[in-house]
């Protein structure tokens, strides 16, 4: 194990789009990152996938500026902030508890559906948390990033991803429907 006191920086930044696709046949959702603004409908077996949302975002890895160790975040789909939609949800309970300690809670999502079976490891989430805390004045507040599986009911969660949705529209964005 390395004894380096890692200092993390974002590397391998790529700007593009988080594409949310839903099958019109079975209603399953999948997400992927694309550097191009794709809206194509396509078939895969019995499924016909159509884009339901295309949000501008970016992907990155983290590298230690001291020892050059790189931590990859290929499967990080986005960070979601809790809007307190379900009072009994574990995330909302944690959010309130942390808020009293001036800790800002965010929820990390991997790509759907892979993330449901292959979650982003706790170690990677801790490193991501460490990175954002290293970038801030932690005497004021800190950040904590938790896994999405703490959300009780994904299908009704109204948390919002920190993605750029509807950037080309001059109209204020409408309230987003639950995506998952």
């Amino acid at each position: 194990m390395s004894d380096c006191q890692h200092q993390w920086a974002m590397v391998h930044l790529r700007f593009g789009f988080m594409v949310y696709e839903r099958c019109s046949h079975c209603n399953s959702l999948r997400t992927h990152f694309s550097e191009e603004d794709v809206w194509d409908e396509y078939r895969e077996g019995d499924c016909t996938y159509m884009v339901v949302e295309n949000a501008q975002t970016f992907v990155f890895d983290l590298a230690c500026t001291k020892c050059n160790h790189v931590e990859k975040y290929d499967n990080l789909m986005g960070l979601l902030y809790c809007t307190g939609c379900l009072p009994d949800c574990k995330v909302e309970i944690l959010r309130q508890e942390y808020a009293a300690k001036r800790i800002f809670l965010l929820v990390a999502f991997g790509h759907v559906p892979e993330t449901q079976t292959n979650r982003i490891s706790q170690e990677k989430l801790d490193i991501l948390t460490e990175h954002f805390n290293q970038r801030r004045d932690t005497s004021r507040s800190t950040v904590k990033i938790v896994p999405f599986n703490l959300i009780d009911k994904l299908s009704v969660c109204r948390g919002e991803f920190i993605h750029d949705v509807g950037m080309l529209s001059l109209e204020p964005p409408e309230e987003r429907k639950p995506l998952l």
Binding site: M10, L13, F15, F58, F60, L79, Y81, F104, L106, F132, R135, R136, D137, S141, V143, E160, I162, H163, V165, P172, P173
Partner: peptide, 25 residues
């Protein structure tokens, strides 16, 4: 990706999503 702690962030965006982003960095 790019803002630093203590920066003034100048924008025309007003959606509530700017707050978590501002807070994160």
């Amino acid at each position: 990706a790019g803002a630093k702690s203590g920066n003034l962030w100048v924008t025309v965006q007003t959606h509530k999503s700017i707050i978590p982003a501002a807070n994160l960095v």
